[in-house]
């Protein structure tokens, strides 16, 4: 009986901090919706608009694809780093997360230089004779996904390296000694044990209320997502109730995704959560 009580006691300061810096502002944002207008009417207005529904589904679609790519790229990169000789790991981690040393605005605008009509990629394609004229790559959903993946893969790697390093080598060797193929060892031993890291990585990675800078730089107005739409409502229209409604829906989507991921994690590895 004493052990759970001790856990709650030890966790109380961190819980209070989270409540103060996360729950309070989010709660205030949601409460702000009711500033004069009926919250129901505002949500109804959001979902009655075909454009707003498009933005929401586009955001979910981009976040899902970005997450899937970031998980695959991040997982296998982290696996390679965690299995590398110890003296190389630090170097590899620094190389993997080097992009984080620059600001998110710089990283996002770099894609203008890479994907632009006069950009590096179009220059290479024409130089190699693959295309005759510059391709319009910016302001497409693909450009937004590439910019988001680039932004979040380093975070995924950082999260997963710690988890994968924590899987004992003996365990993998013991599993391998039973005769399964490397793929079966990966599927039945390594992957389930890495699930907690995948959940954390997914949660801290491409969030569903996506940050506005990468989609704005690579996708512009044509690929508006919840983050850029929220920015427009708050900073251009100065419509705070509508911005709060958008923020509340984005938070609800995020919580739903995290809960779904947690449920999936329990199914994949009952001991993971």
């Amino acid at each position: 009986m004493r052990e759970p009580l001790t856990g709650w006691t030890l966790g109380a300061p961190a819980t209070a901090l989270v409540a103060l810096i996360l729950i309070a502002p989010v709660g205030a944002t949601i409460a702000d919706i009711s500033g004069g207008a009926s919250p129901f009417a505002l949500y109804q207005a959001f979902f009655a608009s075909g454009f707003r529904r498009t933005v929401l589904w586009r955001t979910v679609g981009i976040a899902t694809i970005t997450s899937a790519i970031a998980l695959v790229v991040g997982f296998f990169t982290a696996l390679a780093v965690s299995r590398a000789p110890r003296r190389w790991r630090s170097v590899l981690i620094v190389m993997a997360v080097f992009a984080l040393l620059t600001g998110v605005v710089v990283r996002s605008f770099a894609w203008l230089i890479i994907l632009g009509r006069n950009g590096i990629l179009n220059g290479f394609l024409q130089w190699a004779g693959i295309t005759d004229a510059p391709l319009a790559m910016l302001y497409t959903q693909g450009a937004v996904i590439v910019a988001m993946v680039y932004l979040f893969v380093p975070l995924m790697i950082l999260t997963l390296v710690g988890v994968l390093e924590g899987i004992p080598e003996d365990l993998i060797r013991a599993a391998a000694s039973l005769g399964p193929s490397p793929a079966a060892t990966f599927r039945q031993v390594i992957f389930p044990l890495a699930v907690p890291g995948l959940i954390v990585g997914r949660s801290s990675c491409p969030p569903d209320p996506s940050p506005p800078v990468p989609p704005a730089a690579a996708g512009g107005e044509r690929q508006m997502v919840m983050g850029t739409f929220l920015h427009q409502q708050a900073m251009v229209r100065l419509d705070w109730p509508a911005a709060s409604t958008t923020a509340a829906i984005a938070v609800a989507v995020t919580i739903a995704v995290v809960l779904a991921m947690t449920r999936l994690a329990r199914r994949l590895n009952p001991a993971a959560t």
Binding site: F109, N118, Y139, A217
Partner: peptide
């Protein structure tokens, strides 16, 4: 219309990259 830009810097980038 390629984009309805938010900042002058974004527009200058669009011009310099040929967009």
């Amino acid at each position: 219309v390629v984009d309805n830009y938010q900042t002058g810097s974004a527009m200058i980038n669009l011009a310099s990259t040929g967009e």
